[in-house]
């Protein structure tokens, strides 16, 4: 519980630091590269394969029940935009980016570089977390778009070549509406914000030497993955009630 309050504190001071400004120049671009560009292949491969698997499973199931596969594509794109793309991208980034941020900040903490920052009058949150926060929010949205597109295309090709679904029928976007897109966007932004805050928090709490950094890294992976899942649950339930009709 104490931890949750402190975590909230990190989040609030991150927002405050963002408004205050005055962060090191070029740091955001560097972080965007580290978080975004370097995760591209990872996101593309994982989401591409899971897209194929999901369509495979769905088609198998529809075959078992109705044999009508014309609905698979339109339902799939709705699920991809409103949930699969942001959430799976979020889970993957929680692993890759979360561990990276915690290892980096944790190493600085145990080698007393964080204290050195504080001594020179710089707030560690401003210097270390704010640039990662901004970069992560932007890049999560970008990677979600990329991952979703790859998932959709990989799924469509699977449906076509494995189950003979007409590509035109599969890639039918008529049932996709702003509600799905906005729900997906809100999720992506939320995860993008949660991952650097949770893992930065874990990094700043690292104590001791190499074991401390190891602990922080593990905690960051688990913490940010769980955060993504919990936020997904909350946002999905909220979306169901708020957007209700529009999602159907």
């Amino acid at each position: 519980m104490r931890g949750l309050i402190e975590l909230w504190g990190v989040f609030v001071s991150t927002i405050a630091g963002m408004i205050r400004g005055g962060r090191p120049k070029g740091e955001i671009v560097r972080q965007m590269h580290a978080i975004g560009n370097k995760s591209m292949l990872f996101i593309a491969v994982t989401l591409g394969f899971i897209g194929m698997v999901m369509i495979y499973q769905a088609c198998m199931q529809f075959n078992r029940v109705t044999g009508d596969l014309s609905q698979v594509g339109v339902q799939f794109i709705r699920l991809v935009t409103s949930d699969f793309a942001p959430t799976l991208t979020g889970m993957m980034l929680a692993t890759r980016v979360g561990a990276g941020i915690a290892a980096e900040i944790g190493s600085m903490k145990v080698t007393e570089q964080v204290d050195a920052l504080r001594m020179s009058g710089v707030l560690p949150v401003d210097y270390l977390i704010v640039p990662r926060f901004i970069a992560s929010v932007v890049m999560t949205v970008v990677l979600t778009t990329l991952g979703g597109a790859i998932m959709y295309v990989a799924g469509g090709l699977t449906a076509h070549y494995q189950f003979g679904v007409n590509l035109k029928i599969f890639f039918d976007l008529s049932l996709l509406n702003p509600a799905h897109l906005s729900l997906g966007l809100v999720k992506a932004v939320t995860y993008g914000a949660a991952i650097p805050v949770v893992s930065g928090f874990c990094g700043l709490r690292a104590k001791g030497s190499s074991e401390g950094v190891g602990w922080a890294t593990t905690a960051a992976v688990i913490g940010s993955s769980l955060a993504v899942l919990l936020l997904d649950f909350i946002l999905s339930v909220a979306g169901f009630f708020v957007l209700g009709e529009a999602l159907r």
């Binding site: 890759r96 561990a99 990276g100 290892a103 944790g106 190493s107 145990v110 030497s209 190499s210 950094v213 190891g214 890294t217 593990t218």
Partner: peptide, 9 residues
Amino acid sequence: AVGVGRAVN
């Protein structure tokens, strides 16, 4: 120690 962090990642 840095190597261990990188390996975990």
